[in-house]
Design a protein around this nucleic acid. Sequence first.
DNA 1: ACTCCTGATTCAAGCTACTCGAACAAAACA
DNA 2: TGTTTTGTTCGAGTAGCTTGAATCAGGAGT
Lengths: 256, 256
Amino acid sequence: MAIPPAVNRPVGTIERAIEIMEYLKENDTATVSEMTDHLNCAKSTTHRYMKTLAANSLLVEDGNEYQLGIRFLDYGEVARNKYRLYDEAKPRVDELAEETEEKIWCAVEEHGRSVHIYGAQGKHSVQTYARVGHRNYLHQHAAGKAILAHLPDSQITETIDRHGLPGRTPQTITDRDELWEEIEAIRDRGYAFNFQESVEGLHAVGAPITDENDVAIGAISVSGPASRLEGPILRDELPTLLLGVVNEIGINMAHP
Amino acid sequence: MAIPPAVNRPVGTIERAIEIMEYLKENDTATVSEMTDHLNCAKSTTHRYMKTLAANSLLVEDGNEYQLGIRFLDYGEVARNKYRLYDEAKPRVDELAEETEEKIWCAVEEHGRSVHIYGAQGKHSVQTYARVGHRNYLHQHAAGKAILAHLPDSQITETIDRHGLPGRTPQTITDRDELWEEIEAIRDRGYAFNFQESVEGLHAVGAPITDENDVAIGAISVSGPASRLEGPILRDELPTLLLGVVNEIGINMAHP
DNA sequence: ACTCCTGATTCAAGCTACTCGAACAAAACA
DNA sequence: TGTTTTGTTCGAGTAGCTTGAATCAGGAGT
């Protein structure tokens, strides 16, 4: 469950360090000067920050360029392994990719957003912006909407209040009322669709993985080109397949 | 190439934050009190640090327990993708695992230590402490020694000076002269062995991946139970196989 | 060769904001 | 119920973070 991360007096130094990491995630590489323009502080300060981070292997220097160090992998893997879901879902995601020949994602919710913890590609699967570790908005994709619809209303409101409903494509739902209607529909049928709401030309189906208390602990989605994912395949075949899988994972999670 | 990360005046706040992350990596989970015992500061300070980190999704709160957030995956994946080696090596590591039925690792050097960037397991492969993202000492395992032996002498000395030669098993090489002899041997034959030097009962062979300037940009290793990896298999068959693979990767890296 | 520039790096001084300890609240315990 | 342990808040003081200027290193232009 995501508790609103409101801190009374956050440590500025830490937040600025994270700002550096975030910038390097987006831009791959940066110099001290470039980073100074981005942050709002003296160049000497930026320099000291980056040197400190580099000394701890969080950043790697290559001449004057800095980039993220793979030490993050270490932390990331530890974090991922904590989600038992990963172990349970991985083999079935692989199977699904094999079977459907499309792209399969497993996502979890964290702080009101979603994180892709595992993905597998089928023979014909498409490449999108998404990758393992990617965080995005719950309302923008099938797996996210599946999780969102499974939250109690109060938490949905809270999530929307916190993150808003930013658009990504013209099809993305950015209106609160419209989203609530969509949520009702998802609750009725038990799974969510995504009609080009995250990527143009991409359709998807997502279904929630629930624990023994019917709380959504994650979701799985199948996505592919709109031309291929439509009609009965999208409406009936894939949802049936998907529901079987998420059900199975849920049961395995409940009875280790 | 690893430049000695010596910082004049490191930012204490950042280093303490990293200390928290490191502790959580080792211990999976911790409370504010527990962390306060570990760090040397007031409980209120620890509290503020952890709240700040949690507010930025680097930590996740579960009641009073904190653990690493999977936001690290995001950074880790970005970092890993920067190593083109990963893309080139992955398919061949998978093949090797299939072919040898043993555990295969691909590692790179960073700051005088090694990082496993990818691993694949064959049908009979053993599980060890190692996992993706794991950092350890170059002199303690086959892939690491293969990289180490390929460095110029000055950098080897520098690396040893910085990190020392800590032992892991009774077989680990902890004596400088002995290590230099080993390095000579590795240079002569072109690949490295590991006879229970990292894990008791485990043997391995490792060979370096070199770029067009004969600089080692990584290494690949095959490891398995000592009972299975011995005699001609360990001495001839696997090295031949391995050299073919690292050679191929090297060529592909040089001519994209 | 010399100059000019751009960017990294160092340093002392000033003052921000990080650290501390105490006090409070809340939960666990006996 | 009282007691202990834990998380949390807050004001005050000073450690140490920030700053801007000065220095150094490398490259480009003349």
